[in-house]
Design a binder for these strands. Structure first.
Lengths: 157, 157
DNA sequence: GCTGAAAGTATAAATTC
DNA sequence: GAATTTATACTTTCAGC
């Protein structure tokens, strides 16, 4: 059975998405050569993929180490907030914190998982103190000792 | 006391990095206007930031949901491997798996944290079986119920 | 979706500050 | 030494087919 995607995205679309998620600076001309299409046809497809929301955004990935972000932490936490509107506020505040790179609601022991980048332990301490003021009941922090892989590339091919 | 970075990167460099990590498709002309420099001067700075490793790569962020990746999982695992060369092999294999988006060595109860994207439960089951064949002793899987934030933007400003 | 032309960009070289 | 202006090559992008 075919997936839903294959009915909307053909092989060329997937090739384009895959090329761009690995190297978004590829020129339209280069992309066109890769998929054996004319530059205008290629351009139209990429624009379509963007406007239809398959491509969320284009970003530059900076080097954490070179920029002094020595601490990458995973913070598990639970809250005693249960009112829907107050939970929403909490999530809005978490989202607005620039040091919070990722945040998910998780199955399991804790309510939330946060991925946080900080420059040093003092910064991290301040951040955790800030969390405690938001109605967080339980926090467990794990430090990343070593990065083995960091990718934004979805396995679409 | 000034940070190390401020000795190498000036305010304009940080502005450029910050602009590009949020929207890497900005044209050189637009960047130049933002930082009040001529396009060639801006271009030289960006190239320098790339060649010196402050910018790792440029990528397009795809929409997981639209592409059918319904399962985002965080897998904690420990291994019984202790030989250095065999551990290296394990890490190389983890790195090579396209469904493994991120992988870190962690402090705490488990040796590794994996962030894994899969299309459905059957796929996930197959993946976990594959892990079990690599010398993994203990696995704990948490599913992301909801994404509150997903960002690649470091808080450099 | 293709071809060919027009507009806009990136980039290298020469010049100035 | 670093930024600017000038000039060229390349790319994107819009017609018409």
């Amino acid at each position: 059975m075919e997936s839903i995607i294959s009915k909307i995205l053909d092989q060329i679309d997937l090739q384009l998405l895959n090329a761009l998620q690995n190297e978004s600076q590829l020129s339209n001309t280069e992309l066109a050569k890769m998929v054996n299409l004319s530059p205008p046809a290629t351009h139209a497809r990429v624009k379509r993929l963007e406007s239809e929301g398959y491509i969320d955004r284009h970003v530059a990935i900076l080097n954490q180490e070179k920029l002094g972000f020595d601490l990458l932490c995973f913070i598990f936490m639970s809250t005693n907030i249960h009112q829907a509107d107050k939970l929403e506020l909490l999530e809005k505040e978490l989202k607005a914190m620039p040091e919070v790179l990722e945040c998910y609601c998780l199955t399991g022991e804790y309510d939330y998982l946060l991925k946080v980048a900080k420059k040093d332990r003092k910064d991290l301490e301040g951040f955790i103190r800030k969390l405690n003021q938001l109605g967080i009941t339980r926090i467990q922090t794990s430090l990343a000792l070593r990065e083995i892989k960091y990718s934004t590339t979805l396995p679409i091919s």
